[in-house]
Simulated scan of single mutants.
Amino acid sequence: MTEPINFNKARKALHKQQAKAQAAANRARFGRTKAEKDAEALAAEKARRELEGKKREE
C-alpha cells in the first residue's frame, strides 16, 4: 500500500504555493520603478490612441 497522506500538510503546502504565486504577481505589479511605470503608461496611451484612430465612424 501507499503511504497515508497527512491532509494538514497537503493543505499547508498548497496554501504556501498559492502565497508564493501571489507574491510573484505582486512583485511584477508593484515592484517597478517610476520610470518603468511611466514608460508602460506611455505605451498603453499610444496603443489606445492608435486603436482609437483606426475605429470606423458609422
Rank of each mutant, 00 (worst) to 15 (best):
A24R: 11
E45L: 14
L14E: 13
E3C: 04
T2Y: 04
R29I: 01
T33C: 02
Q17L: 01
R29L: 05
K54A: 14
T33P: 00
A24E: 14
P4W: 08
A28K: 11
P4Q: 09
R56L: 15
A28P: 01
M1K: 07
E52I: 04
A47G: 07
R29S: 02
A39H: 04
Q22L: 11
A19R: 06
A23N: 06
Q17K: 13
R29G: 02
T33F: 02
A44I: 11
E36F: 07
A10T: 13
L42K: 15
A21I: 13
N26R: 13
A35W: 02
D38F: 05
K12V: 03
E58H: 09
E3I: 12
A41W: 01
N26D: 14
H15F: 01
I5G: 00
A28S: 04
K16I: 01
Q22W: 03
Q22D: 08
N8Y: 07
K9H: 11
A41C: 04
E36W: 04
M1S: 12
N8L: 12
A28T: 08
R27V: 01
E40W: 03
R48A: 15
E57D: 13
Q18N: 10
E3K: 13
R11V: 07
Q22I: 11
L42H: 11
F7M: 08
N6M: 09
R32L: 11
K55F: 05
E52R: 10
A47C: 07
E36I: 07
K54D: 13
F30E: 14
A13F: 03
A39F: 11
F7P: 01
Q17D: 05
R11Y: 08
A41K: 13
R48H: 15
A13M: 06
E52V: 00
A44K: 14
K16G: 02
A24W: 04
K34Q: 15
R48G: 03
P4N: 14
A43Q: 14
Q18M: 09
D38N: 09
R49W: 02
F7K: 07
N6E: 10
R27Q: 10
H15I: 02
A44D: 12
A28H: 00
A47H: 09
A13S: 12
A43C: 09
A28R: 12
L42Y: 07
R27N: 12
E45S: 15
L51M: 05
K34R: 13
A35G: 10
E36R: 07
K12G: 00
D38L: 12
K16Q: 13
K55T: 10
R49Q: 14
R32A: 10
Q17E: 11
R49L: 09
K16E: 11
A23D: 03
L51I: 00
R56P: 10
G53S: 14
E3F: 03
P4C: 05
A35E: 14
A25S: 01
R49P: 02
R29V: 05
G31K: 01
K20E: 15
Q18K: 13
Q22F: 03
A24P: 00
A47P: 00
E50Y: 08
A28I: 10
A41T: 08
A13G: 05
R27D: 09
A13V: 01
L42N: 09
T2R: 06
L51Q: 04
K55L: 15
A23Q: 06
E52F: 08
I5K: 10
A23S: 03
H15E: 08
K55S: 06
E36G: 02
A47D: 09
A39G: 06
E58C: 03
E52G: 01
F30G: 06
A13Y: 00
A43F: 09
A23K: 03
R29F: 05
